[in-house]
């Protein structure tokens, strides 16, 4: 089974879901000098771990359940997530069975488990409420999204090379991709919920980059006002509107755009360090550039 595509194939997936990113382990393996098929088990393990973590995240955050477990309850979702974790571990073990990849199987398994421990720590911190400031926001984003994408890139490349300097480049590239995806996911939290036309009327807005940026910089009185608006925004359209006005006036749009530019630049620089070979380099650059904000 092949989940992703190589450097010589065209993506048919939407850039708004996981399908596009499944190619990361394959492309990084190829870009480091390996063969596409070396990354099959790694890609399966990565996507299964992602699916398990995503499911547990939804239960923890009390998000809207998916249709398949809406009536069955969160216990069933947690049970399925546990099954996905063990399935992922089985896929990871298979890396050791192949002559071309067996020598790096232990390193890759350790990389997986360390990365997921870091992600778990970020998830745990979310239980304590929104980040207190921008520094904490970036720490959590790096622990969760950054670590996950860094894993796909670093482990994919590790299948083909043990050059520490190059591997660090792949790791940095993945981290920056993860941060960019987190920024865009936070922008999504501003959009109206299905069936509504009111932007910002969502619980997630309080945890988003735009809110944390604004709360970090506003004077105390206005900060308290915004915190109050964010608290009631999910059930009060006027509060949601006022919160977005305060966020807009603080320059959050400019800040988010600047951060996207900065992280894209860091991602491209990381590819230079990874000293890529072949057409996979162009594909990885293209993937990063899908995260740029298109011109209107």
């Amino acid at each position: 089974m092949r989940l992703g595509i190589g450097a010589d194939q065209e993506s048919k997936g939407s850039n708004r879901n996981i399908s596009q990113w499944v190619s990361l382990p394959y492309l990084c393996c190829q870009a480091a000098g390996g063969h596409l098929e070396w990354a099959d088990d790694l890609a399966v393990a990565w996507i299964l771990f992602y699916s398990a973590a995503h499911l547990m995240d939804k239960v923890q955050d009390q998000d809207e359940p998916d249709a398949w477990w809406r009536d069955l309850g969160p216990g069933v979702a947690l049970s399925a997530a546990t099954g996905l974790y063990f399935s992922a571990s089985l896929a990871l073990n298979r890396i050791a069975d192949h002559p071309d990849t067996s020598s790096c199987a232990v390193d890759i398994a350790e990389d997986f488990h360390r990365s997921f421990l870091i992600m778990t720590s970020g998830q745990y911190r979310d239980l304590g409420g929104p980040p207190n400031d921008l520094e904490e926001y970036w720490e959590r984003a790096s622990a969760k999204s950054g670590s996950f994408f860094a894993l796909a890139c670093h482990a994919g490349a590790r299948l083909a090379t043990d050059d520490a300097h190059r591997l660090e480049g792949f790791q940095r590239f993945g981290t920056q991709l993860g941060l960019l995806i987190q920024i865009k996911d936070d922008l999504d939290d501003i959009q109206p919920l299905p069936g509504s036309t009111i932007a910002g009327q969502r619980r997630e807005l309080a945890n988003s980059l735009t809110s944390i940026y604004t709360l970090s910089l506003l004077p105390e009185v206005q900060r308290q006002r915004l915190n109050g608006m964010l608290r009631i925004a999910p059930t009060d359209a006027n509060a949601a509107q006022e919160a977005l006005q305060m966020i807009n006036s603080s320059g959050a749009t400019l800040y988010v755009l600047s951060e996207i530019e900065r992280h894209l630049n860091l991602a491209i620089n990381a590819l230079e360090q990874a000293a890529l070979t072949g057409p996979a380099k162009d594909k990885l650059e293209q993937l990063a550039n899908t995260l740029a904000i298109p011109r209107l």
């Binding site: 708004r16 995240d57 999204s145 996950f148 995806i181 922008l187 959009q191 807009n248 749009t253 904000i293």
Partner: peptide, 17 residues
């Protein structure tokens, strides 16, 4: 003429890790 809502219109993705 971007504001935070129009930026979210053009730049969103559906990922949460």
């Amino acid at each position: 003429k971007l504001n935070i809502v129009s930026l979210s219109d053009v730049g969103t993705g559906n990922w949460r890790a």
